[in-house]
């Protein structure tokens, strides 16, 4: 009997190995290992030509935590990401409710209208705002006609925020819709029947039950926003530095380039996310209890 099982086990193990190996190798080699490398780089230094010098040091981290350029970039990025996430949530939630509660035959088309921007090139969509906000663009032309005169719209932090919200909104709406569509709205009637007013019913029933969608959407919006550099460059005019801009510059454009410092920034960005994701798991596991 033992041999029967051994034979079967061996066959299964070979199959499993064949299925796993390519994907595992690829992810280890081209994802995990590179991450390890920048982690190690973050403890190295740089020479005047921008080459990495293999001398262990904590200087990169000290620089980041002491020089206002970097400290400010961190706070600005985190603050902007929080703001973007919250605004997307405030816009996305009612929209998702609207889609979920519209008549059956309308729901798919309405959802498709969210899916299209979701699948559309981010850069192109951000670029569209350049046209709108340009100094001689349509908004300013309109303002001129009604006599207010031109305003500086492009290359402001406000433009960056609008661009981020515009770019990330679909990523918020889709998971929210998935959660709200599953929500049984008769529960709201049940709550009303038990004496809850609309706000209480929302806070006590609907909000907790759609929390997974809120959290998923927030994570999907927060992560890319934290590392963005395109929006602040195209719409914000690169006037102030966000994390992404600094990292991009340190890796590609600075003179000299400074990969170790850039790596340290990337590592710290990962750290922020790690903390957030751990908080997320804490929240969701408490939710389940």
């Amino acid at each position: 009997m033992a041999t029967i099982q051994q034979q079967q086990q061996r066959r299964d193990r070979i199959r499993l190995a064949l299925l796993l190996t390519p994907g595992l190798l690829w992810l280890l080699l081209f994802f995990a290992l590179p991450l390890v490398i920048i982690f190690l780089y973050s403890f190295m230094t740089n020479d005047a030509l921008g080459r990495v010098v293999y001398e262990p040091t904590l200087n990169n981290y000290i620089t980041i935590f002491t020089q206002s350029l970097y400290v400010n970039a961190y706070w600005r990025s985190i603050w902007t990401s929080v703001l973007t996430t919250v605004i997307c949530l405030l816009i996305g939630y009612p929209l998702a409710v609207f889609i979920a509660r519209s008549p059956q035959q309308w729901r798919m088309p309405l959802l498709m209208l969210i899916l299209i921007p979701f699948w559309t090139n981010f850069l192109v969509r951000i670029y569209a705002w350049q046209i709108i906000l340009a100094n001689n663009g349509i908004i300013n032309s309109f303002l001129e006609i009604i006599g207010i005169g031109r305003l500086t719209l492009l290359n402001t932090e406000g433009a960056t925020l609008i661009g981020l919200i515009y770019g990330e909104l679909p990523f918020m709406v889709l998971p929210l819709y998935a959660a709200i569509d599953r929500f049984d709205f008769t529960l709201m009637e049940a709550a009303a029947d038990l004496g809850a007013n609309k706000v209480q019913a929302f806070l006590r029933i609907m909000l907790p039950m759609t929390m997974p969608g809120i959290v998923a959407g927030s994570v999907l919006v927060f992560i890319p926003t934290l590392g963005q550099f395109v929006v602040s460059e195209l719409l914000g005019g690169a006037k102030v530095d966000y994390l992404g801009n600094l990292i991009q510059r340190l890796f590609l454009r600075a003179n000299p380039i400074n990969w170790p410092l850039g790596s340290a920034m990337a590592v710290l960005m990962m750290l922020v996310l790690l903390v957030l994701i751990m908080m997320y798991f804490r929240v969701t596991s408490e939710e389940e209890r």
Partner: peptide, 12 residues
């Protein structure tokens, strides 16, 4: 993982 982190890691 933010794409920019993956990008610089692959670059390195």
């Amino acid at each position: 993982v933010p794409e920019i982190v993956m990008a610089v890691a692959l670059l390195a």
